[in-house]
Each structure stands twice: as C-alpha cells, then as structure tokens.
Design a binder for these strands. Structure first.
Lengths: 201, 201
DNA sequence: GACCGTGCTGAGCGGTCGCACAGCGTCGAT
DNA sequence: ATCGACGCTGTGCGACCGCTCAGCACGGTC
C-alpha cells in the first residue's frame, strides 16, 4: 500500500535545488546532519517541500545517490575509453569531492538498507566496467597476470586512492606521497608516462 | 566553566557495562543508532546513568575510542615485535571486528570535531609505531627503498585490507582474493612464508 | 466561468533526543 | 549518632525529528 500522497513532478526546478542542497550538506556536515528541515534551510525553501518532492528521507537519499552515480558512471566510462585507461582511471579515483560524497553515502548505507543495496549495485557496476577494460588491457600490455591480475590492479588502484582520501580527511599524510608514487610508478611501467594532453576537461 | 554536575567514578562497574553496550551498538547498528536511551537499554540500565557517568555523549564516545585504541596499540606493538612483523601487521590489520569499530568511529569523526582530533592523534600513533619498526625492517631485509619505501609499504598494506573490509561490508567481493594474494606474495618475498606457529593468541 | 493539475505552505501530531536537577538509599568513616 | 561520598532514579524541559493534511494561488483547458 503505497501512500497516495500527491508528489511534485520529477523535473520541477526546486526538486533539483533540494538535491543540490542535500549534496552540499552531506559534504560539509556529514550525513547525520541531513534532516528535512536542514536541507530546506540550505536550499532556502520550506521544510514541507522536501516531503512534497520525496516520499521519505530515504527516497531523497536514493535520488542523490542515483543522480551522482549515473553521472560518475558516464564519467568513468569516458576515462576508461582514454588511450591511457590506467592513468585516466587513477586520476578519476583520486578526485576529492566525488569520493567524499561516496564516503558519506557509504556511511548512510550502514543504517538504511535500501541505500546499502543500491550502493552495492552501483559499486559493482563501477567495478565491472573497470574490470572489463582492464582485463583486455593486461592482455594488450602483456602483463604477467599471475603477478598482477586485472582484479588485483583495480582493487588496489582504487583502494589506495580512497584510503588516502579518508586519511587526508582526518588530517593524516604520513606515507601518502610514497604510496601514490609507488602506484604511479607501476602504472607508468605498464602504460608509459602520463600524456597530460589527454587529460579530459 | 565546566559544569559541576556530580559524576560517577571511572572504575565503577556499570560504567564499563555502558562502554561495552556502546561498542555493541556501534558494531551492530552504526553510530547514528547510538543514543543515551538506546545505550542504556542495551546495557539493561536506566538512561540517566549514561549522563551520570559521562558528561556528554561526546565524552562517552571518547571513552570508547580511548579504551579501544589503547588496547589496539598494545596489540599492534605485540604484532610488531614478532619475528615476522610484516606478516603479523598484515594479520592484525585484516581483523574484522576492530576495524569495523574503527570505521564507525571514523564516521562519527565527520561530525564531532573532538572525536576527529582524537582519532587523528591515535591514527598517527599507530602509523608512527608501524613506521618505526618497518623502517628498520626494510634496511634489514635489504629492500630497494626507492621502489618500496617503508611509508608506502605501511600505507598500502593497512589500506588495502581496510578497503577490502569496507567493500565486504557492502557485499562486494570481486577482485578481493587477487588483491590479498598480491600483497601476501610481496610480504612473502620479503619475509618468507608465514610461520603459523608464531601466530599470537 | 468552471475545472483541474501543479507548486507551495501553515499548522500540527507523535516521537526521540541530550541533558539537568533534586532527592533517594546505602555504607563506611568519624 | 552523624555525616559525606557514591550509586542510582523520577520527572521533566526544550529542541529537533519525519511526516501528514487541508487548503491556497495560479496558469492552462475546455
């Protein structure tokens, strides 16, 4: 029995404004600071509007998650289509803002199971897309896949960058430059030096 | 001016019971599910007791953080004193429960700055202790430190395991075995095969 | 001019939260 | 016998939470 409450249109302007405000709040104050009243305040709108456009807070979070994930999937696909996919993937995964937002949503996931399921779905999609390209790549680069399998490469590349982001958020930095350099040396060995002229907008 | 409210003794039995209950709640339901009333319920005690032993929720979380961190620091020191410090550190950092608790506290840190500062302090201490031992170790093992610096080793070893924990918590597993095997191959190259008889209790 | 879809809002309900405070009973020291 | 320290609790305040509902304003259609 879905509630029959009247909801706002998906393409209404203020719906997007609310989504933007939610993202800002997530980034600046963390997910526990996100309430309907706070989102509305950050958007300069009345609190009831949140419930007018979203049946529940869960639905609001899901909308943020979906909007951002779909965009990031397209962005990652572009990166993977580059002539230097490993470098592009590396730069993609070391971007600060998207990965901070991801971390907040992962935090949310620990309490809201609908969100957890959706995050897992997207995370798997990201990894599948990465693996598809990198599997071909290790063959093309004639990598010793007993030593560096596509799976290991992908997990370690994206993992190291994410961990370093998290530590930086706490104010840590020891060992980061060394770890980044190590990964980059390996990428360079496989793919040659990064051609900066290839960097996407 | 600190409030002059009368507080319970630090060694009172029920204070520890409350700390235990808080840890359980953090692990099982995530930090946003931890409130004074819930902690008390989980401990089988009255809610006011929480405020009797802890001036604020922040102080409660700090107490949990400190108790666990001090214990983990001692545990890590033991690991680092092993004849196979890399293996021991690796096993230490792949333990599920402590690192889940850590993740919850890190989540908390994004909102409570006193907690963030304290977490950062402990995290730095962990890393310093690791670096001290591993710096000597790479010299002893005659590692090419241009390729594998102590800092990079430590960041990547502890980072990869933590990332894999987080992904597992979401239900992901692709690439994990490969990544773990890659790290373990490198450890084995440096330190020989893990001597299981050395494993601590 | 009637009707309807749509954006929006004032008012409010039932709930949980952190935290405070005054005071109870018990027990060991004086 | 008195007293203070200590463990504990009944009561309650003010804030914020998610969410609902009835209804207003307005523009387009018939």
């Amino acid at each position: 029995m879905a509630s029959s409450r009247r909801l706002g249109a998906p393409d209404a302007k203020n719906r997007a404004v609310l989504l933007d405000a939610t993202e800002r709040l997530l980034l600046e104050e963390g997910y526990a600071a996100v309430s309907s009243r706070r989102v509305a305040a950050a958007a300069g709108l009345k609190p009831q509007l949140v419930h007018y456009y979203f049946r529940s807070m869960d639905e609001l979070f899901m909308a943020v998650l979906q909007r951002r994930s779909e965009e990031a999937l397209r962005y990652q696909a572009e990166a993977l289509a580059s002539p230097q996919p490993l470098w592009a993937l590396w730069e993609f995964s070391t971007e600060l803002e998207p990965s901070s937002l991801t971390m907040e949503l992962v935090g949310l996931a620990s309490q809201r199971k609908t969100i957890r399921a959706e995050i897992a779905r997207y995370a798997d999609q990201f990894r599948r897309d990465q693996l598809e390209v990198v599997s071909d790549l290790v063959r093309r680069y004639e990598v010793d896949t007993d030593e560096f399998s596509a799976g290991a490469l992908v997990v370690i590349m994206t993992g190291v960058s994410r961990i370093i982001m998290m530590e930086k958020a706490l104010g840590m930095s020891t060992g980061h430059d060394d770890a980044l350099a190590l990964v980059e040396r390996h990428i360079e060995r496989l793919e040659g030096p990064r051609d900066v002229s290839l960097r996407p907008s």
